[in-house]
Design a protein around this nucleic acid. Structure first.
Lengths: 293, 293
DNA sequence: CGGATCCATACCGCTGAGGTATCGGTCGTT
DNA sequence: AACGACCGATACCTCAGCGGTATGGATCCG
């Protein structure tokens, strides 16, 4: 192969891509540079060089604002998944090295507070199998699990459709259920036998809670900022907010809160998901165990 | 974030990964270096540095041979997909830039010679839709389509399960059908009304054809080496080989060959596939059109 | 109109990637 | 057994390019 042609094919390297993603997320060269631990000028240069090589503008900049162009938005989205894939390659290689030294183990992620019962049964069923390895359970905020899978920090995840994005992952469905609203005991709404989403939208004393986005920041709004579901549950029992969750969490509710079915909320399907092409025997075992539940 | 910690997180960059993949594929530092257009010593250095940073051996080398370790095999597989994702990011960004200039168009890949009728109907149906854009049809050898999708050189593909690997792609099923054996007219086997796979395995005068692997080389064997299905069909009518294909290709068979159902061959499902998270309106339109067929 | 803010440019120093020469170990041949 | 061919590792050198500091130029605010 012509070496020049081979070199030309590779316009983007990881460094530039990381730089671009940082700027695209911050929409501010100074802050992005700070986040990357470098000075602002080299960052400006790197980005404009990248643009020249791609032959397209990625950002429209005035001296007062930075915005993504259409191709820039594409590169942000695709670049993130590419960086995730790179990180995954590294993590899984390291994992494989540790496995070779006898330190096996899979990492399973689940949304903190959800699917508790299912998870417990799954772990029991898998542990009973011959050849089962250690399962490290990682609990995280909503919407984080798929990212952990894609970046190789986890091997299997319990996800909930339609909330979590399962595209690009291999999945098996485990359980489909309706949702319930969890309300403070004694609240007027608890008098109903069933509710509709519209009933919950503008309750003055119970604004919807706000979860952190992928970047860790919160959207604007009235509701309390929450980081995990224990915290959320406590806020509900204090009469500060409400939550709409899959019916199975009823089992874990304590005093001070009441669950009421929400009849027009979308059905939630709990799925077990793993990265495509997974060759891990442990992952396969976990999936088998989950399907037998 | 601590800049040092941020730097430490990124052990592998694209350059090193490309180098490693080349060596892992060639299993020979000299040839890999030649393929990469660099000298052998810097390649040796880069690999051993990568191994030191990952904290594990990727290759076992004697002065006469190079072999992959277990973690090395993992890095090869995961690294390839990561490089594909990077290439995809670049291609799709470029594509988006061209689209912004009015040069729209989607690239659809199909196995050369398969699904001809379905493909024609799909293109017609989509072209009739309002807002349809130009569709570039790319025909390629078997097993190449998924790679083209994953590396962003194509936007949609027609794949055939169980032959093609659809993991990590979004798919919709289009058609399921049985398979037929295509044989030279007049061959004794054509006397049967139906056949079994075992009947076709060791026909002395009709060895199975050999397709090129992902690296473009052929496996050892008696059968003729083929590169596309026209060539293959001609070889069948010349009495040199046979083929087992989905039933719908019967429509395109000409003189000199006969199709006989193979009752125990796995059913083939034709699916339309696209990369996960695709935001392309054109891709969505094609999928809709395909589902309406 | 002056100051603050923010991205781009100019210039410099140094890290590190790649090149050449060579070593050391293994296998095949005579 | 000795020699040569082969192949990966090491030593050493050169220079591209990455990041840093200083500064320019444009825009918005008071």
């Amino acid at each position: 192969m012509d070496p020049a042609a081979a070199a030309i094919r590779w316009v983007v390297d990881t460094r530039e891509l990381r730089y671009f993603v940082a700027v695209a997320e911050e929409l501010h060269f100074g802050r992005a540079a700070q986040r990357l631990g470098i000075a602002q000028p080299p960052l400006s240069r790197a980005i404009s060089l990248l643009e020249r090589r791609l032959g397209t503008a990625l950002l429209t900049r005035t001296s007062r604002s930075v915005a993504l162009t259409e191709p820039g938005a594409v590169l942000l989205r695709e670049g993130r998944t590419a960086l995730d894939a790179l990180e995954a390659a590294e993590h899984r290689t390291r994992r494989s090295a540790r496995a070779a030294e006898g330190e096996a183990g899979v990492v399973l992620v689940a949304k903190a507070g959800a699917s508790g019962e299912l998870l417990a049964k799954l772990l029991d069923a898998y542990a009973a199998e011959p050849g089962a390895v250690r399962v490290d359970v990682e609990l995280c905020g909503p919407g984080q699990q798929a990212r952990l899978l894609r970046s190789g920090r986890a091997d299997v995840a319990l996800l909930h459709r339609p909330f979590d994005d399962t595209s690009g992952l291999d999945v098996e469905e485990l359980l489909t259920e309706g949702q319930v609203a969890v309300l403070p005991a004694g609240h007027p709404l608890t008098a109903h036998r069933e509710l509709r989403l519209a009933d919950l939208d503008d309750v003055p004393d119970l604004p919807h809670p706000r979860w952190p986005g992928p970047d860790g920041s919160y959207a604007a709004g009235r509701g309390p900022e929450v980081r995990d579901s224990t915290q959320l549950l406590q806020l509900v029992s204090l009469g500060r907010t409400l939550m709409v969750v899959p019916g199975s969490v009823r089992a874990q509710l304590g005093e001070g809160v009441v669950a009421v079915p929400v009849v027009d909320a979308p059905e939630v399907t709990t799925v077990i998901a793993w990265p495509p092409h997974s060759r891990s025997r442990a992952v396969a075992g976990l999936v088998q165990a989950a399907l037998r539940l």
